[in-house]
Structures are given as structure tokens and as C-alpha cells.
Design a protein around this nucleic acid. Structure first.
Ligand SMILES: [Mn+2]
Ligand SMILES: [Mn+2]
Ligand SMILES: [Mn+2]
Ligand SMILES: [Mn+2]
Lengths: 219, 219
DNA sequence: TGTAGTGTTTAGATTCGTCTAAAAAAAATA
DNA sequence: TATTTTTTTTAGACGAATCTAAACACTACA
């Protein structure tokens, strides 16, 4: 039905549109897909003819109902495979994305439901991102960037906004991972950095940039 | 280096050439690949230019050293994934081939070595076919078709020649699987059928066709 | 040994996804 | 509002893999 390449476009449109909430420009999609605006124009017209996106020339593009379904199915597979790689094959959380980019395109609904079961129906991937169920529904937990957390309120790390290897390695070094309990002790006005306490013991200061990429939930 | 399609051609040539022992005709390769002789001619010329096959016009084709390496790597991945599907995801041995056809093309040497370890370094896939190691070496066990087994000699089923769903379902029905111990009690001259005893108890008669597709080794 | 038949290769076209260059539309700015 | 700049689309081409039709090479055998 949809090719490897079409699936990747739909996933990118879904992400850039903030889960289908706003329309996506040709240039931003070209940057995301590491290709040219001309190629994007072509592909978007093609996806529009297949009713996978809503598109008007010069007005941007967004996923249609059908396109959203496809995107969510790919995202579900991507995240389940990442859980498999980390939980079962002992990969590190900064090594799994590229392999999951390939595995997400394997076509077999039965394979995915068996994998889901084998992994014990995980609700989140190794980076804390939610895994949609077979109907595309996310289990929603209210999460907030660490920069928004109120002072001295205990919270738990539930996800990261930046899954780059560099950032994940930094988090490892300072001892932050999914599930880590922490609170913010103080904010430093002059550069936006935060003084935090990890697991009721380790104190450290992290930059505003780092804090914006750490998502937490109240406990 | 090699595309999805090129990998499939190399695998097919390797199989049709009986592990590189004899050269493969354009037509037989076209049939195996479900395509036309013209397409095969094109692809074989391309693989020849890439030094993955030895090829002279009108004289047939065979894998080169490099092509054999590629084919064996794909075969290794195919069979390891089949073991994963059966042992870990509880698939039935007649359901795994199509999915493994997709998974065999995932590119990540580390993934395969981790998978191998996770599966406890299996030497055979669910159909009894040997899994080459990372250097392309098969662990060789002398196996023989059940039709060649001497009378009243105890043996063990180690592989099947026919992995079709129909044949595997038949084997399930009569209670034969990889590892089953059996011996041949008698041969019926008029139609080549065999009277066999399974696990020292169950007696049954199987056709010559079935027996030719069951491979056994002495115990 | 000439010829019919089979097997194989070449020629030319098609689809998919991509590219560069140029044209057109929209947005920004003067 | 008129002009410049940016964004987007169109035009035309290309490589990969495929196809059909036609030409060519090898084989069999009369
Ligand atoms: Mn990922
Ligand atoms: Mn992808
Ligand atoms: Mn198989
Ligand atoms: Mn394949």
C-alpha cells in the first residue's frame, strides 16, 4: 500500500505538524527528510492523490485520517523495536534509533502483536516516548519540561526531547535516566541554569538547554 | 554496498548453484526470482561489473568469492531471525519464512551478533538448515534423506528439504519434527512408501515423496 | 550440415524517487 | 504600492529495477 519512502514522509509530516495540529511547510519537510524542496513537492502531490495527506499548493501539508493511521503504525513499530533492542539485546539507549529506522518498515501485523506481547506490552520506549496501541491511542501522562517544574516539587524523569547520542551520553554521565527521581532546588536567573537534586542525594547544576530537553512528571 | 534486490539475486544464485558448485542459467534464475529473463540478464551484468558474480554471456552465472560472502551473510540473518520468531515469539515453523525474507535485509552487524548471543548461538534454523557463522562456515553434520536410511537403524530428523506450509503441516499431523527419533522398519517396493517407527512407539507409513523431503542423521 | 526450436541478450519504454535549474507565487520591505 | 527576497512549484533529466518485443546465439536433430 505505502512504500518505505512514503511511510517515512508520513511519519515526518506527523511529527513536524505536532501530531497533526498544524500544517507543515515544504522547506521544513525537505530539511527533515534531508532532500530538496522539489522532491518534497513531488511526493506531497503523490501522497495527496493517495488521500494520505491534505494539501493545497503553497498552503502546506498535513496528514489525513488515513495518513495519521499509517504514521502511528510506523511509530508504534519503531518504538517497540527500540524496547526490544534495549531490553532484550542489551543495546544502549543511544544506539537503537538507526536500527529501529530500518525495522519499523517490516510488514507483518502478527509480528508486531507478538513482539508487543514478548516485551510485556510496554507503554514507553527507551527514551520515554509513548508507544501507541494497535488503534493509535497513546497512554497520556502529563509531562512537562524540567524548566517548568516548580521548585522543590518531587518529580520523575519520563522522557527526553532530544534523543541524540551526545545528549544521552551526557545524561548517563550525570546519572539521569528514565525513571530518575529529582527535584529543582534553585534557578539561576542570569543563564537559566538549574540546581537539582537527583534521587534525594546527588546535587548538580544543569544548563537551561539540558533542562528543556528533560521531561518530567509529578510523583 | 548491495541493494535489497541485489542481495536477493545473490542468495538465489548461491542456492541454485548448489552452494557455488555449478553455474546457473538465466531462465532458472528468472523463475526463482519470479521475473523475466530480460531482467535477469540486466541484473547479472550489473552484478558482474560489481565483481559479485562470475558471468560470461550465454554461459551462465555463479557467485564470486565476494558474492558468496554476501549471500552467506544474508542466509545467516534469515535463519537467525527464523530462530528468533519460533523460539522467542512462538511462531509456528511454517509461518516464519516470509517475515524472515524482510528481516534478512536489515543492515547492522552488531544487531546480528547480539541476536546470535540472545538466541544462544543456534547452529540450525527451525527447519533444520544450518546457520553459517560470522565467517560463513557451516557446522556440517552428515545428513541423508529418509529414503536412504538403512533398515532398523536409529536416526534423528535434522532437517527438511521442503519448507512449504503444506508439508510442514503434514509433518505436524503425523508427529514428526526436528529432533524426532525414528527408524525405518520396512520399504514397500511397489510405491516406495516406508513403514517407520517414531520415538520407539508410533508406527506409520509415509509416501516416498514425503520420505525424500525428510533429512536424518545417525544417532 | 542446414534448419527449427529454445535460451539469452538487447532495445526501448515505464515507474519510483531523486536531482538541478528555472518559473511562479507569496511574503517582506522600502 | 512597487520592488526585492523567500518559498514553492514545474520542467526536464537521471539511476534503479522492471517490462515487452525483437534480435541474436546456441542446440538438437532431420
Ligand atoms: Mn527512535
Ligand atoms: Mn524510516
Ligand atoms: Mn526460510
Ligand atoms: Mn529477501
Amino acid at each position: 500500500m505505502f512504500s518505505f519512502v512514503e511511510e517515512n514522509y508520513l511519519k515526518a509530516i506527523y511529527h513536524l505538524s505536532d501530531h497533526g495540529r498544524k500544517s507543515v511547510s515544504t522547506n521544513s519537510l525537505a530539511e527533515e527528510m534531508q532532500t530538496t524542496a522539489a522532491s518534497v513537492s513531488d511526493m506531497v502531490a503523490k501522497l495527496s492523490k493517495k488521500k494520505a495527506v491534505d494539501y493545497q499548493k503553497y498552503k502546506g501539508v498535513n496528514v489525513s485520517g488515513k495518513g495519521k493511521e499509517v504514521a502511528l503504525r510506523v511509530i508504534r513499530k519503531h518504538r517497540l523495536w527500540e524496547v526490544f533492542l534495549v531490553d532484550k539485546l542489551k543495546f544502549h539507549w543511544d544506539e537503537v534509533h538507526e536500527i529501529a529506522e530500518q525495522l519499523e518498515h517490516i510488514k507483518s501485523p502478527l509480528l508486531i502483536s507478538r513482539l508487543d506481547e514478548f516485551l510485556d506490552f510496554p507503554k514507553h520506549d527507551p527514551h520515554g516516548d509513548p508507544i501507541p496501541d494497535e488503534n493509535g491511542i497513546f497512554s497520556t501522562v502529563k509531562k512537562v519540561a524540567l524548566t517548568e517544574l516548580e521548585l522543590n516539587t518531587p518529580a520523575q524523569v519520563v522522557a527526553v526531547n532530544d534523543s541524540s547520542s551526545a545528549f544521552l551520553k551526557y545524561l548517563d554521565k550525570v546519572g539521569v535516566s528514565i525513571g530518575t527521581k529529582l527535584k529543582v532546588e534553585d534557578t539561576n536567573e542570569f543563564d537559566g541554569s538549574l540546581d537539582i537534586i537527583i534521587n534525594q542525594q546527588k546535587a548538580l547544576t544543569i544548563s537551561q538547554t539540558a533542562a528543556q530537553n528533560i521531561l518530567v512528571a509529578n510523583i
